[in-house]
Simulated scan of single mutants.
Amino acid sequence: MVVASVAAEVEGLPPFDAGALLSQWGIAPLPLIVTVWATGLYVVGVLLLRRRGDVWPVGRSIAWGVGMLAFYLATSSGLAAYDTVLLSAHMVQHMVLSMVVPLSLALGAPVTLALRTLPRRPRGWLLAVLHSRLAKVLGFPPLAFGLYVLSPWALYFTGWYDASLRSTYVHEMMHVHLVAVGALFFWPIVGVDPLPGRVAHPFRVLLTVMTLPFHAFLGVTIMGQKTLLGGDWYPSLHDGPLGAWLPDPLEDQRLAGGILWGAGDLVGLVFFVVLFVQWVRSSMKEAEREDRRLDRLERQDQRAAPAAQRPAPTESARSE
């Protein structure tokens, strides 16, 4: 009955193409509210800084805007309309929510913006959360890494994915989970916010390298599966009115695995570029700090040298 109900809801969908992505928009209340509030509060924070003469990097604002736009497109555009119809469409959505959105939002530095603009009491509450034991546990790099690489396996090779196809609530919670786990992993590595779990740049690169084989292996595993993910869900849709244009479920599953593999490597490359730029900038700032320290020491030595060269007073001068 559930499959029949969903088939009835999507039976009017046209073939999946670029036109469908633009025409099959929906107004999902939760993503719309999250997008409007998150974007609005960020803009208010930036305007407050500018009014008092402070500077906020434009690149951070652009990164935040890209992240929120990617989130809304993944959850409300035509891509969301087809995410329970085509596994390949779902996989694109998966990669956007788990990689593109967290990476972009982390580069936006919203915590730093909040700490610089909030009144004293709310800022104190935020600092208390950042220094809490829960934040330290969630920011522990090995835990975040484990959640990030193992969650997709748990999603696709347990009953979780099948449940997400049949339950709207589970489906929405899956989206929340993808963004949250991605944020736990990306924020301490590429973010500039003062969060627990920050590690040195070499270890950040190591964590990034370690994620790539997991995405590739999962993608190859899905491509080679003879059993369909989601059980009889996709065949049931294929046998209904959508069967006129739906691809073979097994072929679509192979495409989905290829998307996971290729998109993971592509975003991983962007990840590497971001880490490299941050590492270079950090090294340059460290070099500037070291130069300033050496300059201070040199000036101190120059001031001390004339005093050391000044002749000591004679006995007669001291007696006078």
Score class of each variant (00 low, 15 high):
Ala38Glu: 14
Asp295Thr: 11
Arg204Met: 03
Val92Ile: 15
Ile259Tyr: 04
Ala81Phe: 06
Gly257Tyr: 03
Val43Asp: 07
Trp56Ile: 05
Phe157Trp: 13
Ala7Thr: 05
Ala256Ser: 11
Thr112Lys: 13
Gln302Ala: 10
Val270Ser: 09
Phe145Thr: 01
Leu228Phe: 09
Leu30Lys: 08
Thr75Ile: 04
Met99Glu: 14
His177Tyr: 08
Arg123His: 05
Gly268Asn: 04
Pro196Arg: 14
Ala63His: 07
Leu269Pro: 00
Ala81Arg: 14
Ala20His: 11
Gln225Glu: 10
Met1Lys: 14
Thr211Phe: 13
Ala70Met: 10
Val137Pro: 00
Gly26Asn: 03
Pro235Lys: 02
Pro122Lys: 11
Ala183Gly: 03
Leu250Ala: 10
Arg289Ala: 13
Val55Gly: 11
Arg50Asn: 06
Leu155Met: 14
Gly59Trp: 12
Pro247Tyr: 11
His131Gln: 15
Asp291Lys: 13
Asp265Cys: 02
Gly191Met: 03
Asp291Ser: 15
Gln302Thr: 06
Gln300Gly: 10
Trp25Leu: 12
Arg281Ile: 13
Leu13Gln: 07
Phe214Thr: 05
Ser283Lys: 15
Val100Ile: 15
Met173Cys: 06
Pro31Ile: 08
Arg296Trp: 11
Leu138Pro: 00
Gly59Lys: 14
Ala183Glu: 00
Tyr156Trp: 12
Ala307Asn: 15
Gly45Glu: 03
Arg123Gly: 07
His131Thr: 10
Tyr156Phe: 15
Glu286Asn: 08
Val205Lys: 04
Phe276Ile: 15
Ala106Val: 09
Ser164Val: 06
Arg254Met: 12
Gly40Pro: 03
Ala216Tyr: 12
Ser104Met: 05
Pro241Met: 10
Gly65Tyr: 09
